[in-house]
């Protein structure tokens, strides 16, 4: 079987419909909801604030912390609320995708906490979290060199495609490759890159290019949402 037509009728380079909103959590310094297709995540930012205990503080540089969690009802089989190895790994890669965007040198001795929760999961949650976190950081007024956007790319068989759904990640009798990408356009750097699958050299590069293109589209949407808050 060759994957010729996507299950949901999208073009191969087309992303799912997006919905975003900032300023959704009253107590947080910055917050956002980011939805792409059926994947929905919420992010909140607290800080910059003093970091306790003192030994964790860095002189001349702020510390960024990210906590990625899934709400137990966000997946079809109830997720144990205790954070697992996956939660910890994703927290780290999301953090590293954002660190180079933030002017952390302004916040020596302080910490910026980002908490991201998956409310509804349908593939691409880590990329959605990058977008939600970027929006929340901008909403908190934390100085950054760009809004980092993220999207998943990949391939089903020989077909390269953008923004895979859960069903596409589980197409039977085909090699499926899933590539998570975050991109900082102003720095022209890919800041999150993870992949699982089986894919040719040519298609790997193609998938990355497609992902970057997707990120740039998402970033434009993010800019619009941030602007709208003040219009």
């Amino acid at each position: 079987m060759v994957y010729k037509k996507r299950y949901d009728g999208r073009k191969f380079d087309e992303m799912r419909k997006m919905k975003m909103e900032v300023g959704v959590i009253d107590n947080a310094d910055g917050s956002a909801v980011f939805q792409i297709g059926n994947t929905k995540v919420i992010a909140g930012v607290y800080g910059p604030k003093i970091l306790h205990p003192q030994r964790l503080r860095q002189e001349g540089k702020g510390v960024l912390r990210v906590h990625y969690r899934m709400m137990p009802f966000s997946v079809s089989e109830r997720k144990n609320p205790r954070p697992g190895r996956r939660d910890i790994e994703l927290s780290k890669v999301i953090k590293e995708s954002l660190e180079s965007a933030i002017f952390l040198e302004n916040f020596g001795g302080s910490v910026i906490d980002i908490h991201v929760y998956v409310v509804q999961g349908d593939a691409g949650t880590r990329c959605a979290c990058v977008c939600a976190a970027s929006l929340a950081l901008a909403d908190a007024g934390i100085p950054m060199n760009d809004l980092v956007a993220g999207v998943a790319s990949g391939s089903v068989g020989e077909q390269v495609l953008l923004d895979l759904t859960y069903d596409e990640e589980h197409v039977e009798n085909e090699d499926v490759t899933d590539m998570a990408i975050a991109y900082n356009e102003n720095l022209d750097k890919v800041t999150l890159l993870q992949m699982d699958g089986n894919i040719s050299e040519k298609n790997m590069v193609k998938a990355l290019e497609l992902g970057i293109k997707g990120c740039n589209i998402i970033k434009k949407e993010m800019q619009k949402v941030l602007k709208k808050r003040y219009e």
Partner: peptide
């Protein structure tokens, strides 16, 4: 050659200097 805003805010252009007056932040 690009000048980029670090924060969301209002632009202020005085002569050749361009700056941002933030609308939010710590």
């Amino acid at each position: 050659e690009k000048i980029i805003a670090k924060q969301t805010g209002l632009s202020e252009i005085k002569g050749v200097v361009m700056k941002i007056i933030p609308l939010t932040g710590t």
